[in-house]
Structures are given as C-alpha cells and as structure tokens.
Amino acid sequence: MFNLFKDRFPVTHSEKEGVIDNSLDMLKHTIRGLIKEKFSSKLKIYVLDSGSCNGCELELQLLFSPLYELSFLGLEVVYDIIEADILLITGLMTENMYVELEMIYGKLKEPKRVITVGDCPVFTAPFKETFALKNNAEIFYSSSYHIVGCPPEPIAILEGLKEYLKKDEYSHQKS
C-alpha cells in the first residue's frame, strides 16, 4: 500500500546533524513565521513510533516540554491523527507497527505530509534485517522530509522542521 505514495513527494534530507548555526530564538522566530504564513498559526503534529529505542521519543518529549517553550509558535502535538497536519515517524518499521501505520496514514488528511525522524526509519541505524522488520523500509513508505541523527537532538529536529516548512510545496492558508 505504501508504494502507492512513495513517489508523491520528493525526498530530501536535512543537511546537517546536530550542528545548528542559528540561535534557538532565531530558529523559533523563523518557525513561528512559517507556521503563521503556511498553516494559519497552528501546526498539529502526530508522532508515530514504529519500533524505536525510545531515543527519538525522549528527544521529542524534551523538545515539547516547557524547556523549549514551543507552544507560542503554534506548534502542537495531537493524539488524534484526524487533527494532524504532519505525521512524524520514528523507529524501525516493524511488521506489527506497519499494520498500525497503514491505518494511521490512511486517516492522515490531504495533502499527506510525512517526516521521518532518526536513522531507524530509513534503516541507516546499525540494525540487521529480521523477519520482524519491514526490510528496506523506504520501499514501503516514503517521506517528504527526513531528519537524520541517532537520535537527532531537539534543536536538530526543530531545524529539520524549519527546513521542511520552508520547502513544503503543499502548504496553503487554512480557511
């Protein structure tokens, strides 16, 4: 099923891992502007863990904690895929979670925006193929953007999100 949308988005990769030139405030300011411009000041993200070591989730948890004060950017984590603008996928693509991902992806609103986070979803982390994994996971699903790192640091995730929002060709003003 995921072959169906493999070629719908041009896959791009974040260029840097962990090395962030912009200051956090500048980064946040830019993201706030992009969300305001392209998503009417509210961007909702749904996170799906398809088989991670929890490293990416812990970094995301920290990113969305009061430490980074992201709420004023209009960035929000939602728990219902129907509300989400972007699907964030972390972890290896396990057979068991693939069933879930199919269902979640089906419910994601159009245009379907998918960002993969960390080395696992694209199988560049040092794991080997097994029967429990969708080997060569990229064949099964593709994303419009990938954030590298094992795991990517919170600022690298934010930086990746900024780059994605800049390039997002499907962005539009919500009515």
């Binding site: 088989g51 396990t94 068991n96 979670m97 794991f127 080997k128």
Partner: peptide
C-alpha cells in the same frame, strides 16, 4: 506488548560480540 518487536534476539545470532555491540 511486542508492538515494537524488532526480533533483536534473532538479529544477534551468528554475530561476533564486536558486531553485536552497536545493536
């Protein structure tokens, strides 16, 4: 449980300790 079943035990079989370490 086992939503995130990666088959790690099987994955490590046949590897040397050095190969297994990063996993």
């Amino acid at each position: 449980t086992f939503y995130k079943y990666r088959g790690i035990e099987k994955m490590l079989e046949g590897l040397t300790l050095e190969e297994a370490r990063p996993i």
